[in-house]
Design a protein around this nucleic acid. Sequence first.
DNA 1: GGTCACTCTATTTTT
DNA 2: TAGAGTGACC
Length: 731
Amino acid sequence: MSNERSSGELNEQQSKAVNCSLGNKLILAGAGSGKTKVLIHRVAVLIRDFNIKPSNILALTFTNKASNEMKQRLENILRTTSQGLWFGTFHGICRRILKIHWREAGIRDFFTILDSQDQLRMIKRIIKQKNLDENLYDPKHLQSFINRQKDKGSRYDNCDNDDTKYIEIYRDYDLACRQTNSVDFADLILLTYEMFKSNPSILNYYSNRFKNIMVDEFQDTNTLQFELLRLINGTNGSLYAVGDDDQAIYGWRGARSKNIKYFTDQFSDVEIFKLEQNYRSTNSILSVANKLIENNTGRLGKNLWSDSDSGDPVFVYEAFNDDDECGFITEKIRELVTKGYKRSDIAILYRSNYLSRRIEEELNSKSIPYKIFGGFRFFERAEVKDVLAYLRVSVNTSDDSSFERTINNPPRGLGEKTMRVIREHSKISQKSMWDCVNDPNFISTIGARASSSIQSYLSIIRNLQNIIKDANLSTIISEIISLSGLNNYYETKKTDESLSKQENLEELVSTGERFSANNSDSENLIQDFLDNASLEAGEYQSKINEDPVQLMTIHMSKGLEFPVVFLTGLEEGIFPNENRNITPGFMEEERRLCYVAITRAMKKLFLSYANSRYIHGSSSFFIPSRFLDEIPESMLQSVKNKSKTAYPYKKNNFDNDHNQSMDQDIFSDKFSIDQSVPFIRVGQRVNHMRFGQGVILSYTGKNEDLKLQINFENYGKKWLVLSYAQLEFLN
DNA sequence: GGTCACTCTATTTTT
DNA sequence: TAGAGTGACC
């Protein structure tokens, strides 16, 4: 965030929103209109002018990043600490509440927070236990079913699904969660909600305490979060909700952007403010964004304007393949850096994480430092999770998943057979797996070899439990790495992979060190560290670089801004992403996502698409994204690379032959390359019997399905199947 | 029970 | 392409 703006004066709209009376307020804030600034200034006004104690304020955001930033910026304005003010994400705050009221919530202390991976593993296990076919009961599908139900506030006994097996799995999953003392993401919120519902006195306490609730990105709240806010806010609270319906991009995760509308209906006396002046982008960028988003229906309607200069035009680069696209980007970055831009001023945005690989390769080969946000998350790496699992069983022995994860890792000679026996026994005796293997009667039924392996595992954990009592966090972690035998295991392997795993574990030790330093006031450092690992997956930094180019998905970029933005992969199927079950409103959400991407740019925006792209091991053709068509041509400046033939395409280096096989793939025997057919390339002029002359814009498909998009002088753009259309190729 | 090599298959976004 | 899952062999 640029300082000149955060310290600057408020404009009239902002000032009204900041200095309003108490009560429920809705701030409709367009992209770049200073919404965080308003939120922070509002908190300052509450404290300074309304004499509200910081401890009576709750500030909710969606990401930890946003929360930390808000905290810091507020303390800058107040010039003091914001002591007692609760900052956090919905999940983080609910976790905090459950840590205090776990009894009332019907769970046990020291619960484990399951991340999506853990959750999926648990569901898979249940499907297996029930002897169901994973093809009929797709674990991922069930995972999203369960999460959607929880996001709506429905437990298994009041949810709707025609397939009773779904409901059974949901029930068994929840049962397993309770038994293993684990809580998933949705549970953090649902348990808090249910606890408030059944304990009016506790609810009362929090309602009275948090008379002032601030919510950022309100359009991203889901049904349950909305209801939770309603509970805490009660009848006389002041909820200050800031949001933008045009930036709702989490519908797929259960967010209900209609909450903005419901807020005015279901909360009392809501006063609405609009922030419509954009301070971020040049007018060229803003016009492109506005034109694009006009294609969505049912918007609340804002008129985002800016009095800044028009600046550079928005550029579009048509690449013929992904290499070309990356080449263009790195070339431009070099140019911009020589012109005085910092690399960290530049962001490369993409729809999906896997699209970053090619870009990374190119940046690496050109030695351009970069930092990638999201993607592989540090705490989701297998070896890191292994070590954390050791820590988890040590503090929560009923955590069966962590028990299972660690007992034979590194291999100690315990196989599927023994595990099955333990699992069975645990199910029948209703005891945790840990309790089972600590029961001498049960152990005596197990073979000598297996039982001695179990004993050595148990002694490792007991040893760790002793160490945990008085060692500091980073010591504990490094003890786990060596005592567990993981370090030895990787040491003897000596592969590149095991080496990098060891490095990651070393990094984990320093992460622990940093965490202790930053959380010296924590009452239970280990618990907080473990929960933090689940809730904040940690950004993985491939290299520690000075001034790196920023790479991230569009989702990650929300709330951020950059002088220069490259928005890549604007192709049908990639962005908008093709979705198997196209849900209603899906396309509009994709469009909003594109809107978010465009409005991240302050000065320069480069859009790019490739005619062919190497994906999932093979090359495919793409047509440009419809979003490009929705922007008037006059607003875009095309940067075409006409000197290169788009098709058939030969790579310059011949180190592999996939391009050649690609040619053959397209021109099979039915449609072989024939000297009478000139190069089909984008920009090629053609003549059609009926439509007359035109220019090839793009193409898709292969063989007899090869389709060309042609822009005819008198008939406009048309798609024609090459094998049927009688085309004359002009020079 | 452990390991390795092979096959299969899924490829969206995240707290 | 890469990660997960499977099966054969030690």
